[in-house]
Amino acid sequence: MTTTLPQAAAAAAGHRPVRDVAVVGWGAIGRVVGTALAEGALPGARLTRVVDNRPLHGAPAPQADLAEALAHCDLVVEAAGQGFVRDLGTTVLTSGTDLLIASTGALTDPELAREIAEAGPGRVYYTGGAVGGLDLLQAVRGLGDLTRVRLTTAKLPATLHQPWMDAELTERLRTATGPVEVMRGTARDVPARFPRSTNVAATVALAVGDPDRVEVRVVADPGATLTRHVVEAEGPHGHYRFEVNHAPDAANPATSQVVPHAVLRSLAALTGRGGQIL
């Protein structure tokens, strides 16, 4: 989006233009983000439309289809899942609207990642979501490639069950009394198999710059009252380890409670409000 001279003058005077935001997906993430925007939690952004294919009651902004939403916003927050990014991400960007992606797992598809990167004039952003240390991993890339990157994610078994699992694995999840490794692969493979549970893997891959370099272990743990993500990375320039343990969202245990607040922090950084540090 091109900044006009009046906008530039306003910014120089300390008065940044307010972003008009449409939230796509009114679930565990979108509801928290949209409600915060509607309540004025971010002075630099206001909620103008909500996009969801289900009938909504009590949403704090008019419900609309994507075409109408794009006519009333300059920034779309995606909280609807990888399918929206695959099917409609470029539509948002080619309309001239910016796009903030929460479902980063979609970007492990190299063809889609290329299409998203080349689309415009809208700009694309992604949020770190439920994992930290990304800024350090991005900085380390300037020193050279990491020789090893590993992510271990542990969640409750019920949040990890997928339609593609065979009867044996399904039974192992159902009867697990301790940790069970469900899958091991790269950050390109795993998010596609667990589209609602492993966006963290894709986010780490985006920071590292290569999804094939990131080894991912997905563990079902019946004792996992908190969702755990452990990132381990090493190279000739150093060794790094980050561990986070999040409370799952009560309505959607596959999502950590912190994720919508990470989206709000990203929005605050994009709007330049609230003293956020990029």
Rank of each mutant, 00 (worst) to 15 (best):
V140H: 00
L100G: 09
M165T: 05
Q138Y: 00
H161D: 11
V180F: 02
L151N: 12
G120V: 07
G178F: 01
E171Q: 14
L134N: 06
T186I: 11
L100K: 10
L151Q: 10
F194D: 08
M183S: 03
L169C: 06
V131H: 02
A106F: 04
R188H: 09
L134M: 14
E168H: 11
T153S: 15
A176W: 06
T94C: 02
T104N: 13
T127A: 13
L143M: 07
D145R: 14
P121M: 07
Y126T: 09
D109C: 12
R184V: 14
L173P: 12
L100C: 11
A187P: 12
L93N: 04
Q162M: 12
R193K: 10
E181Y: 00
E111Q: 15
M183N: 00
T159N: 00
D166N: 15
A102V: 11
L156N: 03
A113E: 08
E168F: 01
G178T: 01
V140Q: 13
S197W: 00
L156W: 04
E111P: 01
A158S: 14
R184W: 00
I116M: 06
L112T: 12
A117V: 01
D189V: 00
G132V: 11
L93A: 08
P157F: 01
T147F: 05
D145T: 10
A130Q: 12
V124Y: 03
P163H: 08
P179M: 06
L100S: 10
D145P: 08
L107S: 10
D145H: 10
P179A: 09
T97K: 09
L169H: 08
D189K: 00
F194G: 05
L136T: 15
L112H: 07
A176P: 10
M165E: 10
R150E: 15
L169V: 05
Q162I: 02
P195W: 09
E171H: 14
